[in-house]
Structure formats: structure tokens, C-alpha cells
Amino acid sequence: MRQDPVLEVEDLHTHFFTRGGVARAVDGVSFSLHRGEILGLVGESGSGKSVTGMSILGLIDPPGRIVSGAVLYRGENLVAAGEKRLRQLRGNRIAMIFQDPMMTLNPVLSVETQMVETVLAHDRVSREQARERAREALARVGIPSPDERLAAYPHQFSGGMRQRVAIAIALLHQPDVIIADEPTTALDVTIQAQILFEVQKLCRETGTALVWITHDLAVVSGLADRVAVMYAGRIVETGTTVEVIDHARHPYTHGLLGSVPSRNKRGEPLAQIPGMTPSLLRLPEGCAFQPRCPRATAACLALPPLSGGDHGWRCFHPQEAAA
């Protein structure tokens, strides 16, 4: 019933070769994404979720390097692709949105320049046509009087408006995939909700698949079709949003869910995951969560395989499927 996935990540390893040693920022990540699907990639800072996003587009700079694995866009392996081919795809078939809207737009170039150059980077159209496309894109993300706003500079926009501009830039070529790296984290909650709603709508309308990278499970639960939870460079649990949120099996996912404040837990102390995120330079042996895990045993000194099927988890002692 399903078509082939637009994007597949297979056993991706991205390491950073620093003076202090090798940091395995991404250590065997796999997932796949279908047309129009929204995947929430969840993890704490330092879990490797952003590096995963950058690796897909080949934007890892030294000392970082993709060591092994594959990124398949419609069956084409991007890890093996040359810089020229990657450049054809970036911003065109696979677009990216970054976290801080204050920083992603160049402060000394007008919005028009920054949008038109993106159109012209991939399509041979006249400057006038490119401008028209930019105008349409701004209108689509709900920016009022786009003609005037095109001539403006980024500092003349509010944070939320800037992120809308960034999203409009990502939408210029109607990409197959958008990788959004915490795009709403820096925004006010109300603006965050508006943008979430609109992004969801746009993806549904255009069939664009979305990788939504975030540390916020609450955001993901309202937005994503599927969720992948990352810890220390590995995906520890993955499945449909309902399965992962309501029937979490990995103790780490459990811990994350327990630390989200919600109405029905009011008055109770919030659960905390004991201990600290391990340094990527000195990861514990086996399951990286084992030193902090309440259920850990000697078996956890070996790396647990991904168990389960469509709803998978990397744990020897998963929680029983809760009611």
C-alpha cells in the first residue's frame, strides 16, 4: 500500500575527530521517511539529532566526517554523492530550517536577495520570475504585504516572522523533504503553535515529508506521525507517535515522558532522570543509558539490538506495554 520512501537513513555513523578523542555524535542511526510523513526526531542536546540532520545534506565540516552508512534519497546514496550533486539537492529537493531565526538570515542582505538567490541557485528563470516565486512563498507562510517585506532586511522582522521567512525559503522549490532543526524552540509559545499548525498544513498540502528535530516531546506528540528517540548517538526507540508516547518501552523514553509537566500530574513532583548525559568522548560500554537506568543489569554492558517490529526499541529490559 505504501510507496517507496523518499528518504532512508541506513546505519549512519558520523564521528568528530577532535583533539580530545573521537566523538561518536551519530552512531548507527537508521530511519525512513515516506511522502508527506512527519518524523519527530527527539533527544536531549548532544544526543546527535542535529548532527543527523546535517549529515543528511552532507553539511558536516571537519573535524567531523560521515564514517559509514548511507543516506538514500529516492534510492540515490548521498553519502557517496559528490559536492556538486549535493548542492543540486540542497534547498531544492531537501531543504533545511535552523533553530535560531535571528541567526539564519544574513543581516546585511535584503530578504529579496536571500530568496531570489535560492530560486536562481536551482532554476533558470528570470530575476522577475524569481521575485514572483519569492512573493508567493511569503504569502503562503502568512506574511502580510509580501511586496513590502521583500525589500526589508532581517532586523526589521520579529523572530516569528523571520522563521516564517526561513520556512518560505525552504518551500521555494517545493522540496520532497524538509529537515527542521528545532525551528520553534527560540519562539514564544503562541507563535510556536501557529508555526507548527501551518507547517503541518503545508506538508499535508504539498506532500512534503518532514524531519522535525526537537527536544520537546510535547511538540512532537501533536505534530508527528512517527517518533524516533535518540540517546548518545543512537535511536533507542522508534514507532508511531501513539505507540511511543502511550506505550513507551525504553526506560529512557519513559524518563523523558515522566519529566514532561502535564495537567494530570499536577501537584506531584516531576520525575527526573538521574545522572547526566554522558560525554560523547567517553560513552559507557554497551547501552549508553545503562549507568542512569533503573532497570540496568550486567547484560546491558553489551549493546542491545533493536527489538520489536514497526515499534522498535533498543533495550534488554523494556518496560511492559503500559495500559
Binding site: 545534506l57 553539511l59 548542492r87 543540486q88 539537492l89 540542497r90 534547498g91 531544492n92 531543504a95 533545511m96 535552523f98 533553530q99 535560531d100 541567526m103 539564519t104 538570515l105 544574513n106 543581516p107 538567490e117 535560492t118 541557485a121 536551482h122 526561513a166 525559503i169
Partner: peptide, 17 residues
């Protein structure tokens, strides 16, 4: 090192641009 340079790369711009 600024994000807008990373974003420019992610837009598929040429290094010359």
C-alpha cells in the same frame, strides 16, 4: 561560523556565492 552561512549552504548556493 554563523548560522546564516550554514543556511546559505543548505539552500544549495555555490561556494563562490
Amino acid at each position: 561560523l554563523q548560522d546564516y552561512v550554514r543556511f546559505a549552504r543548505a539552500k544549495g548556493l555555490s561556494p563562490a556565492r
